[in-house]
């Protein structure tokens, strides 16, 4: 099971770099959706072979929420907003890709110095989580379109989710579900606001949101 775990984590990090390097919004949304599905599968693998109905439900809910529902909302927002699908970044694709790669390497280096339990120390679990969080921040800062910022926010949340899996055996499922639900609702709310921004400003360029200042 450990091999499959590492394979999934590797794919998640790969999707990270895809998200940083792509210039097209639909690809970015697909990358985030793919990450959601892969991350949704992880609890099953971590708990193998002690599966119960709660863990199955959590897996299904995560995959449905992060893999399908949220991307559906984002795709719909993108279509109804009818924006150009190119992203015009604030930090270019190659620089953000390089930044992302550096962040991933840094995550590995930093993890060596963190006190970790033996079962987590050798794995790529913690570095991947840190890499995801840093990638999320790079996208949040480096993109100007509202939807790509939301994708950055989602990758950040994915990283926190991956990190939270360290506590899978001790956090009550109720709390996990509540957190998942909250994230879905937050994207739902963000989606509505994105729509309104489009209608009010006729653009999703957050650089236009500059009326309020001192």
């Amino acid at each position: 099971m450990n091999d499959i775990f590492h394979l999934l984590i590797g794919l998640v990090v790969g999707l990270n770099l895809l998200a940083l390097g792509t210039g097209r919004l639909p690809v970015l949304i697909q990358a985030v959706a793919g990450q959601g599905v892969l991350l949704g599968l992880l609890p099953l693998i971590l708990k193998y072979p002690h599966w119960d109905w709660q863990i199955t439900l959590l897996t299904l809910a995560t995959i449905a929420g992060k893999g399908f529902f949220i991307p559906f909302l984002l795709n719909r927002a993108m279509r109804t907003a009818n924006i150009s699908r190119e992203m015009e970044p604030f930090i270019g694709y190659i620089p953000s890709l390089l930044l992302g790669a550096t962040a991933t390497i840094m995550a590995v280096v930093v993890t060596r110095h963190l006190p970790l339990l033996p079962e987590h120390a050798g794995s790529f679990h913690v570095p991947a989580a840190i890499a995801l969080i840093l990638t999320g921040f790079i996208l949040l800062i480096g993109r100007v379109k509202a939807i790509s910022q939301v994708c950055g926010y989602l990758i950040l949340e994915n990283g926190i989710y991956l990190f939270g899996l360290l506590l899978l055996h001790s956090t009550p499922m109720l709390v996990e579900f509540a957190i998942l639900l909250d994230i879905i609702v937050s994207v739902f709310v963000i989606g509505i606001i994105v729509n309104r921004i489009q209608r009010a400003f006729d653009s999703l360029d957050t650089r236009k949101l500059t009326t309020l200042h001192e």
Binding site: L140, A146, Q149, Y153, S186, V189, I190, I193, R196, I197, A200, F201, T206, L209, T210, T211, L212
Partner: peptide
């Protein structure tokens, strides 16, 4: 549109 800008900042920074 002004409240929208405020809401977006509230959501993104708060989130």
């Amino acid at each position: 549109s002004r409240t929208l800008e405020a809401t977006w900042k509230y959501l993104l920074i708060g989130g």
